[in-house]
């Protein structure tokens, strides 16, 4: 009896790395593969006061999808999905680019973030109050949102020259690209928000069993609105990063299909589309896996026609590695060893 009571802390300490093992292994494997196709992959230098290298590219270009996955992982944890994030990126980017040259930076950023928040709250209200299925509710904004963005940019690429906004694309902090810094900060903020408050537990409970959670006194509706709002906000940040990256807002292409990459990142991160348990850190790792793969394909010089096939195969491999059935086969031995090692 007492031995059983003593056991949990040790097991809890074990669980974190073991749960993350497939994702971290996949990331490492892909990075090594990248190294194989491109010998200078791990080389990091300094160019114009900014770190420079393929590894930095992975972080820098992975930033928008990582940003999206921060919001998406919470939405998915409640059992929902947000298809509109790509379109919200386009809207916020378009707005930021349109305002950047005529308004001070805080106004520009504030407006872009606010529009993302409004989009998120709209999605949340449709899902929580009108009980529209998440996939349908967010589809509305996914389709209409890009149109709104095109209205803002009048159908063309809206360029800007504001140095303030451009910093988010070309700037750096101690050599680290601004987009990476922003995303890292957002990750820490999300973690603090979710694990520093009771939000994480409540989201997991809501996603695991919404009826039971409501009866336990959790305000599941407010919870739902909150996660969609957060997703909208994260998408707005991603939109700002994407616009700053090319010094212009491309309403037709900004964030196009990135909602799918974000969902994939969350799934690779081990969060079930049915909701419940989630991991923010692993969702970000998922985003990095996707980007490491994209960068690797570009570096490999493989003909462009093969890109999608290669991507699909890698994703399949990563997901297979997480399959409970395969895990049961593969992890039986390490599991036994772990118990055996316990004195």
């Amino acid at each position: 009896m007492s031995a059983a009571v003593d056991a949990p802390p040790r097991r809890a300490a074990w669980r974190v790395p073991r749960k993350a093992l497939p994702q971290l292994a996949a990331l490492l494997a892909i990075l090594l593969l990248d190294r194989a196709v491109s010998p200078q992959f791990f080389h990091v230098g300094l160019s114009g006061g900014r770190l420079f290298g393929s590894l930095i590219d992975v972080l820098n270009h992975g930033a928008p999808v990582a940003m999206l996955s921060l919001g998406m992982v919470l939405v998915i944890a409640t059992g929902g999905i947000d298809l509109s994030v790509g379109a919200v990126m386009a809207i916020s980017g378009a707005l930021a680019a349109s305002l950047a040259d005529s308004h001070p930076l805080p106004v520009t950023l504030g407006a872009a973030l606010a529009v993302g928040l409004v989009c998120g709250v709209w999605n949340g209200l449709l899902v929580a109050w009108l009980r529209i299925q998440p996939i349908v509710a967010t589809l509305i904004l996914m389709v209409a949102g890009r149109g709104v963005a095109q209205l803002i940019t009048e159908g063309r690429i809206r360029t800007f020259s504001s140095h303030g906004l451009a910093w988010f694309g070309g700037g750096s902090v101690l050599g680290v690209p601004a987009a990476v810094v922003v995303t890292a900060a957002a990750t820490v903020l999300t973690l603090a928000l979710v694990r520093g408050t009771a939000l994480g537990l409540m989201v997991e409970a809501t996603g695991g069993n919404a009826r039971a959670s409501r009866l336990a006194g959790i305000d599941t509706r407010a919870m739902t609105v909150a996660v969609y709002a957060w997703s909208g906000l994260c998408a707005a940040v991603a939109g700002i990063l994407a616009a700053a990256d090319i010094l212009g807002a491309d309403a037709n292409n900004a964030g196009l299909y990135l909602e799918l990459d974000a969902i994939l990142a969350v799934v690779i991160g081990g969060t079930s589309l049915l909701g419940g348990r989630f991991s923010i850190g692993l969702a970000v790792v998922g985003a990095l896996i996707i980007q490491a793969m994209n960068t690797g394909i570009l570096l490999s010089g493989l003909p462009a026609e093969f890109n999608l096939v290669v991507k699909a195969l890698v994703v399949l491999a990563v997901l297979l590695a997480q399959s409970p059935r395969l895990k049961a086969l593969g992890l039986r031995r390490p599991g036994a060893r772990a118990t055996g090692a316990t004195p």
Binding site: S38, Q40, S54, D57, I246, D250, A254, N294, L298, G301
Partner: peptide, 14 residues
Amino acid sequence: RSQGKQVMESFIKA
């Protein structure tokens, strides 16, 4: 634009 940029970055590295 963004893909063009990303592709060029990888060309430069490679």
